Amino acid sequence: MTRAVIFGTALLLAGCGEAAPRPAVLPAPVARPIPTNGLERVMGQSAAELTRTFGTPDADVREGNARKLQFKGPICVLDTYLYPSKSGGESTVTYLDTRQPDGSPIDRASCVAALARRGGGK
């Protein structure tokens, strides 16, 4: 009988503890549009339009239906990513990335403006 009392007391005490906390339910991430202010010369442009604006690309990389054109200057490096439209039209820039020649970050619009000032050539 003593064992039953000890066991019953242990069960009662175990029930007095705090319930395990429920894991927090996080909302689904919301896709935030990337600001394009100052990037009108690049976003939505074709490879031919980019070449007219920035000159001959320093790199032209194709992977599947995607294409990356890279333009370098003394101030920054601009990587433009072109993809075909859903309707199968000409590939245009849908994303871009910028950095200083040493890899440090730089404002995207500032880089585009600096490279455009090259006058379409090096």
Rank of each mutant, 00 (worst) to 15 (best):
R32I: 11
T80E: 03
A66N: 13
S91P: 04
L96C: 05
Y95K: 10
D107Y: 00
A4K: 10
V112Y: 02
L115K: 03
V93T: 08
P23S: 13
A66L: 10
L69H: 02
G73S: 11
T36W: 02
P35H: 12
R62D: 08
L78N: 01
K68M: 12
A14L: 12
E18T: 14
A31H: 11
A47I: 09
P74H: 09
A10L: 12
Y95S: 08
Y95Q: 08
G44V: 02
V25M: 10
T80N: 05
C16E: 07
G121T: 13
R41Y: 02
A31Y: 07
K86D: 05
G55L: 04
L115H: 03
A109K: 03
V25A: 14
I106M: 09
V61C: 07
S91D: 04
F7R: 14
E40V: 07
G44N: 13
A24I: 14
T56K: 15
E49P: 07
L50C: 10
Q70C: 04
L39V: 13
C16H: 08
S87H: 05
P29C: 09
P29W: 06
L12N: 07
V25Q: 14
R67C: 00
Y81T: 10
C16Y: 05
A24Y: 04
L12T: 14
I6V: 14
E40A: 14
A19C: 08
I106W: 00
A24K: 15
P84F: 03
E49A: 15
G88W: 03
V42R: 01
A66M: 11
G119H: 05
K72D: 11
G89A: 09
T51H: 05
R67S: 01
A59Q: 15
T53K: 07
G44D: 04
T51E: 15
Q45C: 09
L82S: 02
D97W: 02
A48K: 15
R108L: 00
A113I: 04
P74Y: 02
D60M: 10
C16S: 14
A19G: 13
S104L: 06
T9P: 00
V25I: 15
S46R: 11
P105T: 11
D79S: 11
T36N: 10
G17R: 13
G64K: 15
D79Q: 08
K86C: 01
L12M: 12
G38P: 01
A113M: 03
Y83R: 02
V30W: 05
G8P: 00
A113Y: 00
P57T: 15
E49S: 15
P21H: 11
E49C: 10
G64M: 12
G89Y: 01
V5E: 04
D79P: 03
L115W: 02
P35K: 15
Q100P: 01
S46E: 08
R52L: 14
R99A: 09
A4N: 06
T92F: 00
K86G: 12
